[in-house]
Design a protein around this nucleic acid. Structure first.
Length: 915
RNA sequence: GCCUGGAUGGUGGAAUUGGUAGACACGCAGGACUUAAAAUCCUGUGACCCUUAAAGUCGUGCGGGUUCAAGUCCCGCUCCGGGUACCA
């Protein structure tokens, strides 16, 4: 009887659905939370690369269920986003409708794969029931400030109280507010002034900041949405623009986001990306007096303070206009105007080009009292540190390049540990001894840094401090298809909506474009007001909804809270989180930030979202190439193409198997190819291939639908795992799938054979199954799914050879196979007379006693080279092994009379004879 | 540039703690069954030397080293992928 995968797979998919086989509501069991990063439902549907992580997490979730855990394994949709809106602009169709259609398509594809999601917990970030709570969290952020002393977010009322009693002098907060005021002054401020001050402390705040403006998308973008000076989505140019924007004060959490990386089991590469993104650097500020103004610089190398030969300010630095001498004014103005108007892209593309201008002013060195020239240069960034640097060209590569370009002095203050030519490059190693450095002379770099900081602090010329590269996250988007920000404006002051007015539903508009005045699309909405006051018209960015979605799955239907305390206390953190590494500095930082914030407010008993994170590799496409002879309709096989002059064209990969083109399919593909001729090699047309990104235009997209149609879902699941280690990126290639398909057929025959009459267990089969259980269990624990597939193949090969018909053995095999190939496992499980689903079975425990061998075939090496095998009882001691091998005729023959210097025996492993 | 991950047969990959390199598959070659094909099954398959076999030699990107023993550890390189980039 042939294995009819189509019938069997749809039968069990229906069964699981009817039985609610994957609901996760048995709260008496221990919990386990396995989460996939949810997808953005694009119009293209899933290709074979998408399910890679989903299959792995599904296998693990099923494994944990069989081990007796109550497993939370949900799925949902990150359904706000740009593509649906761009489509809406073109067609006028509401993005909700296309989103709905795309979700239906995704769901159909996900169902085909036999995933064990608990669909009762499905969420969609664009549904008001969901984004109500995204808005609610925003409101909490608005009404909170960050206490640096407690290292914790606090309600804004506690800040107001302190202002009212003590002013702001004793407060150590994450804020850009720099002035101090007393309680009396605070009370004397009017409401608008108080609001303005508070805004500078809030964790969700409005401010005028330089943002990444993308004109083509009509919106601002966060730093992680800009790659190489262009937008990540669509690759449109991005420029810097000063705008009033909503931001989230993620920088308040920089240190905790950094420190807590030590507490989580994530890959080192993701942690490193986050560390670099946060970019902590410890250093000190130093004040330079300049015509009664103070220029404050930030440096991590105060040990080189005597090597300063000039200062450089960013073109946007506020003191530029005040410091510049009249004689230099026009030149400086010209430069500043030029630098400010350069787009981000120009700056990026032009990093090597050095530009700058002298202000004519001189500052006074705080220790030597020497005059120090003040320059302006666009290699100094306004947004980092103080926007000004002390240039030490001898020991900083950029300063060196600038000094060389403008012929400025280079003063060596560190004696290098290795020979160094200062005429060629800066010496920027943090190693060596201070020279020409006053009170620092003779100290090592590391000692000098400490001494310099304490001297700087004692003489009040600066203060030790820490800077982060990380910026606050811009939170407003000038777009329609996102969560409305629950804020209204009364007399120009921002107020949040009361939480009982949530959700603030996205209003209908007539066109999904900015208004004539350049306002965001929401400004088109009629009566978009709260009690008559206008509501904020920017919407939240794509990452808002995904920053807390893992919490909603715990209690998806809750109308009273984002999730109940009971649900949160039961489910706790994500135990295993699977997703792509491209989210390293975006989503994965934001979700950690929101988790810490909700923890600070007492809503969560944990401050990291996921204990363990695994990144699945990307699956690339393998394009199929055909070669058309120039000026003809003749195609030549890849091996012969060099004999002709050819044009390379893409053929649809779905017409190609093992590099061989299906010529009939190719002729039918396009009318122009219907009459094509082919020059074959060995009767076949062989295609060339190239690894590229999977995309429609390259005809290399392989959908799971096609594979499932041909081989079934179990086969696709196992084949994707069989391709190689989960974390590794690899090109998709259907070449090996027949191996997995053949395995499933062989497995099926094994069960059909046995069904004719079950028999007793033989020793060989017992050993096989226990060995398999052991290996598969170990592989599961280390997420090595590819090796498990091999193990199953070996198992089935061995059981087939042993003609095993033992029911118990075959049942064990069905159970351990069921996470990988759930449909066929259910079918054979039922065939063996089980009435309950295999998903309710228990993961078997292997019995070591079946694996014990009485004899071991020792590999015998001479000088480390394996020569022959020699069987000996496993219970022999090293001495007994040595004795037996010494007298073995085979060894004698190989040694040809020589006496071994030494015989090394590792019992149960190897014998090595040293001559 | 910096940070990361990687490089093993014709191909995907295995070797978990330093202990038989190439498991398991694909492909290829030969064979069985068949009028034929598909499906299925069997045999062989790292390279070199050789008519074959046996034996031997070489072999995990390159060059060194440690060790009785190195794909695995150490030092120095090359190439490929991912991230990041005037961050003072």
């Amino acid at each position: 009887m042939e294995y009819a995968f189509k019938q069997v797979e749809s039968k069990w998919q229906q069964y699981w659905k009817q039985q609610g086989a994957y609901t996760s509501n048995d709260f008496n069991k221990p919990k386990f939370y396995v989460l996939d990063m949810f997808p953005y439902p694009s119009g293209a549907g899933l290709h074979v690369g998408h399910p890679l992580g989903y299959i792995a997490s599904d296998i693990y979730a099923r494994y944990k269920r069989l081990q007796g855990f109550n497993v939370l394994h949900p799925m949902g949709y990150d359904s706000f986003g740009l593509p649906a809106e761009q489509y809406a602009i073109q067609t006028g169709q509401h993005p909700a409708i296309t989103t709905q259609q795309n979700i239906a398509r995704y769901r159909q594809q996900l169902d085909m794969l036999g995933f064990s999601y608990d669909w009762q917990r499905e969420i969609r970030t664009s549904e008001p029931d969901y984004y109500k709570w995204t808005q609610w969290i925003f409101i909490q952020l608005f009404h909170a400030w960050y206490d640096n002393t407690l290292q914790k977010a606090m309600p804004i009322e506690s800040l107001v109280q302190q202002f009212e009693t003590n002013g702001n002098s004793g407060i150590n907060a994450a804020t850009e507010y720099e002035n101090t005021f007393t309680a009396a002054q605070w009370l004397a401020y009017n409401q608008a002034q108080q609001h303005e001050i508070l805004m500078a402390y809030r964790l969700a705040y409005l401010s005028n900041t330089l943002v990444n403006w993308c004109a083509a998308l009509g919106s601002v973008l966060a730093n992680d949405e800009v790659k190489d000076g262009v937008s990540e989505r669509g690759s449109y140019p991005v420029e810097r623009k000063l705008m009033q924007q909503w931001s989230l004060r993620i920088t308040a959490y920089s240190q905790r986001l950094l420190d807590d990386l030590e507490t989580i089991d994530w890959t080192e590469s993701i942690k490193d990306s986050q560390r670099n993104w946060i970019g902590r650097s410890q250093g000190t500020s130093i004040n330079f007096n300049c015509n009664n103004q103070t220029i404050t610089v930030f440096t991590t190398r105060p040990d080189t303070v005597f090597g300063v030969t000039y200062l450089t300010l960013a073109p946007e630095h506020p003191l530029v206009s005040q410091l510049t001498l009249a004689t230099h004014k026009s030149e400086v103005d010209q430069y500043v105007a030029w630098a400010k108007n350069r787009s981000e892209r120009e700056r990026q593309a032009d990093v090597k080009h050095i530009s700058g201008v002298f202000t004519g002013a001189y500052a006074i060195h705080p220790f030597t009292n020497e005059p120090i020239a003040v320059w302006i240069g666009d290699y100094v960034l306004a947004g980092y540190g103080t926007g000004a640097v002390m240039a030490v060209p001898a020991h900083d590569t950029r300063d060196y390049a600038f000094a060389r370009h403008f012929n400025l002095p280079v003063k060596q203050v560190i004696e290098p540990t290795t020979p160094h030519n200062f005429n060629e490059a800066a010496y920027d190693e943090k190693m060596g001894t201070c020279i020409n450095s006053g009170f620092l002379n003779g100290l090592s770099v590391n000692e000098a840094i400490k001494v310099a900081i304490s001297k700087i602090e004692n003489e009040a010329v600066g203060i030790g401090q820490v800077n982060y590269r990380q910026r606050d996250a811009v939170f407003g988007r000038q777009r329609y298809w996102g969560e409305p920000i629950p804020v209204y404006y009364k007399d120009g002051i921002a107020h949040t909506l009361p939480t009982d007015a949530l959700p603030l539903v996205l209003p209908a508009i007539d066109a999904y474009l900015p208004t004539e005045q350049g306002e965001p699309p929401l400004a088109r909405a009629q009566n978009f007001t709260y009690n008559g006051y206008p509501i904020e018209t920017t919407t939240m960015p794509g990452w808002a909804g995904s920053s807390w979605y893992y919490l909603r799955y715990m209690d998806a239907g809750n109308t009273q809270a984002f999730a109940s305390a009971d649900a949160i206390n039961y489910w706790q953190q994500i135990d295993l989180y699977l997703g792509g590494s491209e989210h390293a500095t975006g989503h994965l930082l934001y979700v950690r930030f929101w988790t810490k914030f909700l923890f600070d407010l007492g809503y969560l008993p944990f401050n990291e979202p996921a204990k363990k994170l695994i990144n699945q590799g990307m699956i690339q496409g393998t394009s199929a190439l055909v070669y058309r002879v120039v000026n003809s309709n003749t195609f030549v096989s890849a091996g012969l193409k060099n004999k002709y002059q050819t044009t390379t064209l893409h053929a649809d990969v779905n017409m190609v198997a093992n590099q061989v083109l299906d010529i009939e399919a190719f002729k039918n593909w396009r009318a122009e190819y219907a009459t094509a001729d082919f020059i074959l090699e060995d009767g076949k047309y062989i295609c060339g291939s190239e690894v590229e990104k999977m995309s429609k235009s390259k005809y290399n997209v392989v959908t799971p639908d096609d594979i499932i149609e041909k081989y079934g879902a179990d086969c696709l699941r196992m084949y994707e795992m069989f391709l190689g280690p989960l974390e590794q990126s690899k090109p998709w290639n259907t070449n090996g799938i027949t191996g997995v398909s053949g395995f499933l057929k062989k497995l099926w025959r094994l069960y059909i054979q046995a069904h004719n009459g079950y028999g007793a267990a033989d020793n060989a089969s017992l050993k096989t199954i226990h060995k398999t259980i052991k290996k598969v269990t170990e592989d599961m624990e280390r997420f090595s799914f590819n090796t498990s597939v091999s193990t199953f193949m070996i198992c089935v090969n061995e059981l087939t050879d042993a003609k095993c018909t033992n029911k118990e053995i075959l049942q064990w095999l069905a159970i351990i196979l069921s996470p990988y190939a759930p449909h066929i496992a259910e079918e054979v499980w039922q065939l063996m007379g089980n009435t309950q689903s295999v998903t309710k079975a228990a993961w078997p425990v292997f019995n070591e006693s079946y694996l014990i061998e009485s004899v071991f075939e020792y590999p015998v090496s001479i000088n480390g080279k394996m020569k022959f095998k020699f069987p000996l009882p496993t219970n022999y001691t090293s001495a007994q092994v040595t004795e037996n091998i010494s007298i073995s005729p085979k060894l004698q023959q190989l040694l040809q009379g020589a006496t071994p210097k030494k015989i090394i025996v590792v019992p149960g492993k190897i014998i090595n004879v040293v001559v």
